[in-house]
Nucleic acid binder design. Structure first.
Lengths: 227, 227
DNA sequence: TCAAAAGTGTTGCATCTACACCCATGG
DNA sequence: CCATGGGTGTAGATGCAACACTTTTGA
């Protein structure tokens, strides 16, 4: 095995919806003696030399957060020379990478999940995992803030693709929840009546024989996706 | 300098329009003694370790085809393990690469140019350059047919972005030429009157005091883009 | 009975589609 | 005068935006 001066990684922007808010999953970079303080980062790691990019993304997400079998949508490669050479990142790299000086090109993926269905758990390689609302993302390691920003742009662009949005929603959901997802991703308010007309005209929804429970107002009709 | 087992390359899908047809630029892989036959391929090469991806794409395109300063739109990374290990490709790699066994992840870009304005010229690293109509692409090296296919999809998706399509057109063009570009990229016929209405409503066109010349039918009005 | 969110229709406007004939030019 | 592509308008359908009140429930 020879050493390398260029590495490929993948980073995953996992969007989650808890019924109220769209959030992004960040992890605490694994801490270690000699590293002064931990940072938050996207789940990501180096791609193995004998591993497809898509497989690497699946593996790494599983290893770091225990999330398995998500749909991962590749959206962009980030390869600026200095994307990992910021002072704040070098200490960590020296502690954990065989070639901390290596340039790293990363291929970024986004994914959508309902929080109630998936429970990410930090592996031993990550301090902990944390959901952060998309409008209060803290400072992250490397260029991960930029990656999230571009991931959101890609998601906005792709949102009309049928069934993409349903990846975020739980099995049973209300129309208000669906609208909330759209509003938060597109970052603008939508008209309730117009929204419902449009959604229903897609013919992808099935009204269930069931209503919301334990709310202190009129309970909403629950829906699931058809077929 | 240590040897590496993983390389990054860029590949460029250059779309060109000659007034009639949308074409893709392919080059002949540089031939050499001991390599039985040449193949056609996209212009592409390894990224230097100290070079941004976007810069590498510019440099490589310049080096191989003498095309300079194009807008390059990154659209996807291709990283299947075996994307360069096909039998037809190995001979060439052994002749030209320091690490012919290395895995290569490529970042793909597309670009649009009017043929009349840019004259690509094969460098010594390329046998020759060739424009191929997008519906008769020959078998290319590596996974380059797939890359073109996905590049076209990205272009379809992006085509509505203002000014993208104008990158393909010469300074002066007719509305029929503009429509032809749309039809070929979207791969469907458009209605002439509806198309013209839509285009004119964009307000991006300026009618020139000039008409087509040397055609054996009614000469068309020439337009350029506004401002 | 109050608060809070659910649910529901209409109208005007803009946009899209389908469609057919005359015009200007060169050969 | 013929062949070729250039150029033009209308009507119907569809889709989008704006807009406010009543209902159901739990507290």
């Amino acid at each position: 095995m020879t050493s390398t001066n260029l590495d490929i990684s993948v980073d995953c922007v996992v969007f989650g919806f808890d019924g109220q808010e769209v959030k992004v999953l960040v992890i605490e970079q694994r801490p270690q003696v000699g590293v002064s303080k931990t940072q938050l980062a996207l789940p990501g790691d180096l791609v193995r030399v004998d591993e497809n990019l898509d497989d690497a993304a699946q593996r790494i997400l599983k290893e770091l957060t225990n999330l398995n079998g998500l749909y991962l949508h590749q959206f962009k490669a980030f390869g600026d020379i200095n994307r990992v050479s910021d002072f704040k990142d070098q200490e960590w790299l020296r502690a954990f990478r065989t070639n901390p000086e290596a340039r790293v090109v990363t291929v970024a993926y986004y994914s959508l999940i309902p929080l109630e269905k998936y429970k990410p758990q930090a592996s031993s390689f990550a301090g902990h995992v944390e959901w952060r609302s998309i409008d209060s993302i803290p400072d992250l390691a490397f260029d991960h803030n930029k990656i999230i920003h571009e991931g959101l742009n890609a998601l906005k662009r792709d949102l009309d693709a049928v069934d993409l949005v349903f990846e975020l929603l739980p099995e049973k959901f209300t129309l208000t929840q669906l609208q909330t997802v759209y509003e938060q991703i597109l970052d603008k308010e939508l008209d309730k009546r117009n929204f419902r007309k449009k959604i229903k005209s897609l013919g992808r929804l099935k009204a269930l024989d069931e209503k919301e429970k334990d709310v202190d107002h009129k309970p909403a009709q629950l829906y699931s996706t058809k077929s």
